[in-house]
Design a protein around this nucleic acid. Structure first.
Lengths: 207, 207
DNA sequence: TCTATAATCAAATCTAGATTTGATTACTTT
DNA sequence: AAAGTAATCAAATCTAGATTTGATTATAGA
């Protein structure tokens, strides 16, 4: 009783998307292979033809999410806009990423913990996160060094920014009061104001 | 083969603490009743003498966490310091709460999702979160109304602040470069700078 | 067309782990 | 000290759900 020829063959990416959606809805542990399979009209067993295990599906989801955001942020960081513009662009990119791929982003943020046991995987994901954080740090440091930004504690500032941006995936709802763009601008504004050099300017090149 | 008389009788709070620690380490679903029991030198079955189910233990953990932070924040919000001082105090209280009870705080932030199914519980926890958020909102709104703060979008601002503060529980490590107090001050500083009324002051009572 | 391979499915395995059960013993009360 | 209650334990239940297994069939390539 087998079925489904070529046109119905499922692409791995479709499974990743489907899994992310189910993880988002029910959490990694709350998601069964059958749930994920149903999303792409397969049976649980068939998933093993595409991925060796449930955990590997999660890993694929996380990789996809980190790939995407890292690519976007890296592009901004590498550009030659001034620091303030870069911060604005990064915030936009981050939020766009969180909103456009809400499920995958949520997985990166909330489900990485599910891999806490496997040290190999855990470390790889952690490393990728650190790498992303480093991009942010670079931009802020450059701004501080140039005197464009107030002399904040860059480590704390970046983590603060990260938390605020990631948290968007917790509360953002399609069709809410503001668009993603507006939210991004509002948040970017908040952090850019926080970075304005002190008016009681002593030190740093004045604007 | 039973044991352990009075002195070894376990207080429910001890179980809550122990469970929070295990949840923190392994996540709710990754934590077994045996793990939690071991933490307080009991066997899995004995836990049922104190809590009707694993889920009820999680609920108790979440309640404890929300109780604590809500109490602290409410005290600040109700006080009559000026808005800026209140913001600083709230940030301190929130971070102290996150750091002093890292496990419980992490549970509130990350494991609430484990209750997504049970609508009754989910809604109750959500309501308590909203209630906490409302306290923050009130303080910011008062400051904006008084002209002490720039006219930010309060809804977004509060969520941004929330995200930043909660995220501390993700990265904070005992014995790190900065103390909790220092971290709180740095973060409070960031948000207070973001709230400074525009220097190009038009409208609002100048400082 | 014949054959190998890929993609599926239904049904069987297997296991971890939550919850129950039935003692057992310590403490408290009378 | 007898009786009742609270707190434990070890061992048994039970079930969900990940993973395996053994067919089955469509499509591609020879």
């Amino acid at each position: 009783m087998a079925r489904k020829p070529a046109e119905q063959t499922v692409h791995p990416d479709a499974i990743i998307q489907a899994a992310a959606a189910v993880f988002h809805r029910q959490g990694y542990h709350g998601a069964t292979m059958a749930d994920i399979a149903a999303e792409v009209h397969l049976t649980a067993g068939s998933l093993y033809h595409h991925f060796p295990s449930k955990q590997d599906i999660l890993i694929a989801v996380l990789d996809a999410g980190l790939d995407q955001i890292t690519r976007d942020v890296r592009a901004v960081a590498a550009g030659r806009a001034d620091p303030a513009a870069k911060v604005r662009q990064i915030v936009r990119a981050h939020i766009r990423s969180v909103i456009d791929n809400a499920s995958i982003a949520a997985a990166v943020i909330f489900e990485s913990r599910a891999l806490l046991d496997d040290p190999g995987v855990r470390d790889r994901v952690a490393a990728r996160r650190d790498q992303l954080e480093a991009l942010y740090r670079g931009v802020i440091e450059a701004g501080v060094a140039a005197g464009d930004f107030a002399p904040v504690d860059v480590g704390i500032f970046v983590k603060t920014l990260f938390g605020a941006l990631n948290w968007v995936s917790v509360w953002y709802r399609e069709g809410g009061r503001l668009t993603g763009e507006q939210i991004a601008d509002e948040i970017a504004g908040t952090f850019l104001r926080a970075l304005r050099p002190d008016s009681e300017g002593r030190g740093g090149t004045p604007l």
